[in-house]
Amino acid sequence: MFDDFILRAALAGLGVALAAAPLGCFVVWRRMAYFGDATSHAALLGVALALATDLPTFAGVLIVALVMALIVSGLSERKVSTDALLGVLAHAALAVGLVAVSLLPNQRNDLSAYLFGEILAVTGADLLVIWAGALVVGGLLIWRWQALLTATLNPDLAVAAGGNPRREQLILTLALAITVAVALKVVGALLIAAMLIIPAAAARPLARTPETMAALAILVGAVSALGGLGASFTFDTPTGPSIVTLAALLFALSAAFGNDRLRH
């Protein structure tokens, strides 16, 4: 009863959840929500780059997302008031990307596929890229986990113990760019940030340690991906938004019924 394309869609969704959910925990802990927005919106510019240069979409998006993530990361280090600036960057990247894609000649200008993803059109090759990317992100996070947590708590604590918070920030930046590149096809540029933040936020009230929060976030992400896929079939709704809607519902449930005593 499972067609191949549904199986591929399910695996693609799981792959994205595996990378985005634990990374999203750091995005939430470090208050980098705008960072995620700016980087994922820059994916559209990456699509334009890929179309203009015949690069694979994944490569174009990875390059532009990485550049954007480095810019944003550099700005946030400079302790100037960056809130408005990050907002400008996030939305400008989206608008300029859309304009650039539609200016390119002879292209299938199906913008909604880039904005909202087309998980049902995931190919075997896409799947390979998505899982390779997810495993790299997961591997980076596991390898640097202790150092990342220390630097997240307080950069000076990390330095005093011989660590290098700047390196950890760079690793998060790289992981974010990879996640954006692999998630574009699945949920689209507009909703990648949602897959970062919502599972992590839904996991928070149920967790007592960072590790349980990351594990629960993966669970929420995976359930949302599979459930959203099913719901989109049942109700004939767009798949990416259905996945995010389910994640938001799980967040609401967790926020309403999460055990307050766990927090203390």
Binding site: Q146, L149, N154, D156, A160, G163, T209, P210, T212, M213
Partner: peptide, 28 residues
């Protein structure tokens, strides 16, 4: 080996952390 106690340490409310887990940073 330096033991550093910072002026203040604000732990973001989104980060769940037991005392034992905190003491396991950066080394287990």
């Amino acid at each position: 080996r330096i033991g550093y106690v910072p002026q203040k340490l604000q732990i973001d409310s989104t980060l769940p952390l037991t005392v034992a887990r905190f003491l396991n940073l950066p080394q287990r």
